[in-house]
Amino acid sequence: MRDLRYFVAVAEELNFTRAAERLFVSQPALSKQIRRLEDDLRVRLFDRDKRAVTLTAPGTALLPAARDMLGRWDQAQREVADAAAAEASVLTVGLSTSVGRGLLGAVRDRFAERRPGWRLRMRQINWEDASAGLASGDVDVAFVWLPIPAQDSFHLRVVAAEERWVAFREDHPLAGRAEVDFAELLDEPFLVLPHSAGPLRDHWLGTSHRAGRPARIGATVANADETFTAIEEGSGIVLLAAGNAAIYRRPGVRAIPVTGLPPSELAAAWRRGDERTAVRDFVDALPTVP
Rank of each mutant, 00 (worst) to 15 (best):
A222L: 05
L45M: 08
D152H: 10
A61R: 14
L62Y: 07
G273A: 08
E275L: 12
R51K: 15
G102I: 01
V107T: 02
A160I: 00
G273S: 07
Q75N: 10
D281N: 01
F190T: 02
A285T: 02
L174Y: 09
L37C: 06
R51E: 14
L240M: 10
L63R: 10
R5M: 08
V279L: 00
V253R: 11
P116W: 09
A29N: 09
F282D: 00
D40Q: 15
A61Y: 06
A132L: 04
A285C: 07
A52S: 13
F228C: 10
V221T: 07
P251M: 14
S131K: 03
G212N: 08
A86K: 15
A57V: 13
R250S: 11
A211H: 14
V279S: 02
R250V: 11
P147L: 07
G260R: 06
A29W: 08
D109W: 08
F182Q: 07
E13P: 01
P251G: 14
L146N: 07
R123V: 11
P287L: 02
G273W: 05
M1L: 11
L91N: 07
A29G: 08
R250W: 09
V141F: 05
F182E: 06
A268Q: 00
H203K: 13
L62Q: 10
L91P: 02
R157W: 02
V221I: 12
E21S: 13
R169T: 05
Q75D: 11
R201T: 07
R115L: 11
A19P: 01
V166C: 00
W73R: 12
P116H: 11
D281S: 09
L185E: 01
E179I: 04
R254K: 12
A84H: 12
K32L: 13
E170N: 15
E163K: 08
L286P: 00
R164N: 12
A86V: 08
D181R: 08
G198V: 01
R2L: 13
P173A: 10
W145R: 14
E170K: 13
G137K: 05
A106C: 01
G71T: 12
P116M: 10
V107D: 01
R18V: 09
S136T: 13
L261E: 02
R157D: 08
A84S: 14
E12H: 11
L45Q: 08
S131G: 05
V283Q: 04
F282S: 02
E188M: 06
A268K: 03
V279I: 14
V90Q: 11
G218A: 03
P147F: 02
P262N: 03
